[in-house]
Design a binder for these strands. Structure first.
Lengths: 247, 247
DNA sequence: TAAGCGAACTTGTACAAACAAGCCAGACCT
DNA sequence: AGGTCTGGCTTGTTTGTACAAGTTCGCTTA
């Protein structure tokens, strides 16, 4: 596993920041100095610090030294996407169960989100996920028809759907869009999560896309309040977070 | 207002995508072709498309043409940060009222978040925000002591705190960290928002920092369910969204 | 003393060149 | 017909150079 030079340098600086060598508010060495230290061109150094900036770890303004903004490890796309991988990296034990799985023609809105023809067959799956045995998340996922056979072959108690799909058919989840809001627990949500009906849930509706840009699944995930928090860093130069009006 | 060449090119391509010239799933022209068309170096083109990629508009893999992922305008940092500016750009009429405002020594946890000494004086403000007259958001903000005088001078019915602070003291919000989850409405929340106690609210806890990296404010914002949704685009190469375990 | 100026430093933008690595389609072979 | 392979295309990485633009800080000057 060989990494690009700028990724190595970024990793080195990230560690130094997390280690406290450059505390929050402190200045990073200048690009020129880093270039000397790492024996790399300035362009390479710029790529490295740009990576850290995109993680929200450092900030910069023209003319002034770069400053350290935060100190906290950022997750990979895989860790965010895969509940199991995330749980494992956090030291939790994740489990899950498929409660229902069936094929049906898709609705017009699903057709748009999955870029398929209205009425095309899709696969809907209802999963309950647990952290250390505690039910935490209800997942209602709609898979595009072309991936349905691979999904149906999975073990119902399969831990990481993401990983199994990669190993089975080489599918890689590469892009995602997420809509986050709060909803009241419905009857089914309440029963599965063991909370009262109407109690608050954190809802994440997501659409995931393969490397080739083909939508694979869209999902309505509901977390029991207090079980997870989403965290986003942004800045004037990198603002991935958008606020939108509700339905 | 002169823009960098790569920003002009990015803007041009963004418009073309939003106009439907490059529909979702289509391929973008190659870097070489764009370089010829815009009479720019390949590096400049790469900066332009990197900008679009960071917005989640296009995706790329080594060896294959870039593909169009999404079509939708992304907001500026200011639009996300300032409730009033966001509302205006969406065509809503925003109003707000300061319900309480007082100075007090900060708690240990606030001291950490604002990078001040424990016990230093801070300013807490309780605001109710409305969209088209409907109460939508309860804001509980803690301002660092050094900015408190400027905040206290503001009109209690002031629409855009962000804009007023910029005009008054030249303060620019530049970096932010956001924690998003769901909570049940407390007694005060319920009364102010006109919902039942215990009903779901979308909570956004944020810390905002100035250009120089100095924390300015941290805030606990609670939206009535259904009024707003947060949206995030991410990918394997740019993942600003992080899932964390709840308290 | 305080305002103003300027020089040195630092990041931002742009161009050019070269090679590496991955993708794709058409040609070729079995 | 179907699989394989290769050559051309496209994006990724790295170096080097030059200038533009903003910040910082010490020095000069009123």
């Amino acid at each position: 596993m060989t990494m690009a030079r700028y990724e190595q340098i970024a990793g080195d600086l990230r560690e130094a920041i997390l280690r406290g060598e450059y505390p929050i508010g402190a200045q990073l060495p200048s690009e020129a100095e880093l270039a000397t230290r790492y024996e790399a061109a300035r362009g390479t150094i710029r790529q490295a610090v740009a990576l850290l900036a995109s993680e929200g770890l450092v900030g910069s303004r023209q003319g002034a030294r770069r400053i350290v903004l935060g100190g906290e490890r950022s997750q990979s796309f895989a860790e965010l996407h895969s509940f199991a991988q995330w749980a494992r990296s956090m030291g939790y034990r994740a489990s899950g169960t498929v409660l229902a799985s069936r094929r049906r023609p898709c609705s017009p809105s699903e057709a748009v989100r999955l870029s398929v023809e209205p009425g095309d067959e899709v696969l809907t799956v209802l999963r309950l996920r647990r952290l250390d045995g505690e039910p935490v998340l209800v997942e209602r996922t709609v898979y595009a028809g072309w991936i349905a056979p691979a999904v149906e072959k999975l073990d119902p108690a399969c831990e990481s759907v993401t990983q199994e799909l990669y190993e089975a058919v080489g599918l890689v989840f590469a892009y995602g869009e997420h809509l986050i809001d709060a909803v009241a627990a419905g009857a089914e949500d309440a029963r599965l999560l063991g909370v009262r009906r109407g109690s608050p849930l954190l809802r994440q509706r997501r659409t995931t896309t393969s490397q080739e840009g083909r939508p694979v699944e869209c999902s309505d995930d509901r977390y029991r309040a207090g079980s997870v928090v989403f965290s986003i860093r942004n800045s004037t130069s990198a603002n991935p977070l958008v606020r939108r009006a509700g339905d």
